[in-house]
Design a protein around this nucleic acid. Structure first.
Lengths: 332, 332
DNA sequence: CTGAAAGCGCTTACAG
DNA sequence: CTGAAAGCGCTTACAG
């Protein structure tokens, strides 16, 4: 069990070859006789030797670690997103023999990220969200660290990957309008999140798509808590709005709570939809119309981009992943 | 900005000393003249040199990485727990110049953990939960990897740290009984989670504490979803139970939903409590009586234990952290 | 107090 | 096709 760690040196001695040869057999780089290769590989297999990645890294000036930046100041409904992202990233990294090292940052404090970088512990970084004023991103750019951003940003020097929020919201909204909704409202969150802008644009796109649509619409942004939502809902009920779309499940949940407390029937009196399905509302009664993204795949692809970047591949600057609009019982 | 990396060698040359001396100035190990030390340290400060931790590690046969094992198969309400844990761990690790490398495992697949270990990428591991049949734990023990477990286990050769679930549940239950509840039920989750057993025991302790208490109690375990809960609630309402305690916020939420659908007033007709406050129900109306733990502190302490272990300190085998019972409006 | 040398476990020109 | 040697950036006996 506790067999002392085999090294490339041990193997070389044991097999009567040089360690150069052993190294070549393992890496597959450099010419080497087929027989010698087999001999080495067989030995390795038999003694299940695993090269020391750290030493390899030192020699190649790499770490085979990628940094994953996770927000320390999250909203609870965002958690499944980060978790699924992380899963996709970890899986791909693992397949390619990289490891994932995490740095938790807040808007005010990115010291964990700085540490990982200045300590030479990572080859590149994945950002799991983008802000309009993005400290981690700025830091990485200034220091020339390779990174990819999950989320969107105007800065098109950064490699970014995102779900197509805009078109997803557009399609969901269009569906609603197409069903004859005449008074519709949008409740959205923090505008310092870039995704908020994208969702908003998608919502607006839908109206441009349907110039024949007649009715009134109302938009509320930077809404933070249930209290505010409750006020808005009160106002909307008074105005006899028939449909409320929330930008995410947290807000949507607030809307539903508020409607329930006010005895408004969903979807009879008011239809409700969410622009982001975090699985929070999956089991809600009635089930809520929303949009589904494959977040694990998003993480996986992001990681693939970063590894490509690190290995010098030409890499797509901007990747947009699909979506799936799910009309459920909270709308008609 | 893109100044090529300074090495210990560059500094030695620049200062006309040996690299041994530079190394000693940095590490503080070995005798060294105060003047030389200052000189080196000043130079380092001025050029803000950071030693290459990887190289240091190679020389010392360490990595300065700890592995964090996170479940890939989680229930959504557990997420804030893992997130807060991670925060505490990352903060302490960062302070001590360690990094945190994550492995996501499931009951069937611990390959990410195995990779990190066999690739020599970590010095030790933190487990973020314990199961009765715990594959990661078994693997770590078999391979002699130092680790600490967040959560409890019977195996007292393992270093473990946990919140005092048992006493917390005991106190909460006692409060309820003390208020004159006569028919009380417990709804609990998966018994393969050790914490389930602890909560159950705490619940039972309360009755032993109050032998004078007269009434009926009912316990339901291994409950998985809202459907099952709904059935139980129906049965309990029929039996005129006045209090339902759920083992966690997920189940509690199911209970509340079910009660609401059945028009049962909380706390008027039925009082409701939760044995674990994940912040999910924090904003619920009415606010839910439950137990609060300082999870970030838990993670922090766990990390402290592991680092102590790695540095050869004598380390407490079993650490139990406090709790806070919060009586709220869902009970009287 | 200080330094030369060997070593950690790999890789990679260079020479043969 | 194969190997001796130098090197990645540190540490650490050992000697002085």
């Amino acid at each position: 069990m506790e067999e002392k760690n085999l090294t490339i040196n041990d193997i070389a001695e044991e097999l009567g070859v040089s360690k150069t040869t052993v190294s070549r057999a393992i890496s597959g780089k450099g010419r080497i006789g087929e027989q010698t290769r087999r001999k080495v590989l067989d030995y390795i297999e038999a003694h299940n030797y695993r090269p020391n990645v750290i030493a390899k890294g030192l020699a190649q000036n790499k770490t085979f670690n990628i940094g994953l930046v996770l927000p320390g100041d999250y909203n609870i409904v965002e958690l499944p997103f980060f978790q699924n992202c992380m899963m996709g990233i970890c899986k791909l990294a693992s397949e390619r023999d990289y490891d994932v090292l995490i740095s938790m940052v807040t808007a005010q404090n990115i010291s964990q990220l700085e540490r990982a970088v200045t300590n030479h512990k990572i080859d590149g970084v994945i950002l799991t969200r983008t802000l309009t004023e993005d400290a981690p991103m700025r830091y990485l750019k200034e220091n020339g660290i390779p990174f990819v951003a999950i989320g969107s940003t105007d800065d098109d020097t950064v490699i970014q990957i995102d779900n197509d929020h805009r078109n997803a919201c557009r399609e969901l909204t269009r569906n609603l309008l197409g069903q004859g909704v005449k008074k519709i409202a949008l409740v959205g969150g923090d505008e310092s999140y870039i995704v908020t802008g994208n969702r908003l644009r998608g919502f607006q796109d839908a109206f441009e798509d349907m110039p024949q649509w007649q009715g009134s619409r109302e938009m509320f942004l930077n809404i933070e808590d249930g209290k505010q939502v409750d006020g808005i809902v009160e106002q909307l009920l008074a105005g006899e709005f028939e449909c409320i779309v929330a930008m995410d499940d947290f807000l949507c949940n607030c809307v539903l709570d508020s409607l329930q407390r006010r005895d408004a029937d969903v979807p009879g009196q008011v239809q409700v939809g969410s622009f982001y399905d975090s699985t929070f509302l999956a089991n809600h009664m009635p089930s809520v119309t929303s949009i589904r993204f494959d977040v694990e795949e998003l993480g996986r692809k992001a990681c693939e981009l970063l590894l490509g970047l690190l290995e010098g591949d030409a890499v797509e600057r901007r990747t947009l992943l699909g979506y799936e609009v799910r009309m459920r019982r909270s709308t008609r």
